[in-house]
């Protein structure tokens, strides 16, 4: 499928899906970039910032797809939309911990590992489906992203398994983080109100199918590490795919657009 042969309705659905993909990566990469200089050791600082940089690159690829679909300048899309126009899952916008990245950060590494690991598994599942998307530019982007995603997934898997099978203290902290992430992960797994249309247009596979794949993989890891599965992941704080968000997103957007917003028309 290409943009010329697409009906207006299909175009709208396609853009809706790409906004989800772009905003998920964009906001989590932003949260990751706040960790810079604060990771548990210098080697991890290097690796984590490389992952965030990749992820920001993925967001940029998606924003450029939207630019090609007539949504306007990619920088403007990334920096100037209102919070309610963002389609990322709420879990991914949540702050890293107490404090800000500049002022007394008290960040939670367990939360960082669990959030990134669970998201990386989902991203992998989602990309495997997008690889055969009916919209070719999206399929091509997915193939490119998968090459890097493989290493991200491996990275977080090592951290997850190491920390969850180490000291009692570490395991306790990790289990608390698993609980916290579980309460919101339904918001990552959902494709939002239009998912039926995405599937009809062949853009991505069915939501329950993708969810099942993610759960299967999680179950395997949980079994290996002796963690009990607590039913289906929930959507406690709202559905970001519908534009529902927390103040954490508004605060993040104000920071990441602070310079750009002073003069969007100017070159930077």
């Amino acid at each position: 499928m290409n943009t010329e042969s697409m009906h207006q309705q299909e175009r709208t659905e396609l853009k809706e899906l790409i906004y989800q993909l772009a905003d998920d990566d964009f906001i989590l990469a932003y949260r990751g970039s706040e960790w810079l200089g604060l990771a548990p050791h210098i080697e991890e600082d290097v690796a984590f910032s490389s992952i965030n940089q990749d992820m920001m690159g993925h967001a940029s690829m998606y924003y450029h797809l939207l630019e090609d679909l007539g949504e306007g300048d990619a920088d403007r899309i990334a920096h100037l939309r209102k919070p309610e126009e963002f389609r990322n899952a709420i879990l991914l916008e949540m702050v890293n911990g107490r404090g800000t990245y500049l002022d007394k950060p008290d960040y939670d590494w367990a939360f960082a590992v669990v959030r990134n690991y669970f998201y990386a598994i989902h991203k992998q599942v989602r990309l495997e489906s997008l690889r055969v998307s009916s919209y070719e530019p999206l399929a091509n982007a997915a193939k490119k992203i998968m090459m890097e995603q493989y290493y991200h997934l491996m990275h977080w898997e090592i951290w997850f398994k190491q920390l969850v099978t180490s000291t009692d203290d570490a395991r306790q902290r990790m289990l608390i983080a698993v609980d916290k992430v579980w309460k919101e992960f339904g918001g990552v797994l959902t494709l939002g109100p239009s998912y039926g249309e995405f599937v009809k247009a062949g853009l991505i596979e069915d939501e329950p199918l993708l969810k099942k794949r993610w759960l299967n993989r999680i179950e395997k890891v949980f079994k290996e590490t002796g963690i009990e599965l607590a039913g289906e992941p929930a959507i406690e704080s709202g559905n970001g795919r519908k534009g529902e968000h927390t103040p954490d997103l508004a605060e993040a957007l104000a920071t990441l657009s602070e310079v750009y917003a002073t003069n969007p028309a100017s070159g930077w």
Partner: peptide, 24 residues
């Protein structure tokens, strides 16, 4: 680091992330 999240375009965000990662 203070400017990494605030870099004023996607391109600048990517470039400064890469740069600071190099420094680390």
């Amino acid at each position: 680091k203070e400017w990494v999240p605030k870099a004023p375009s996607l391109h600048r965000k990517l470039a400064i992330m890469a740069k600071v990662q190099d420094e680390m």
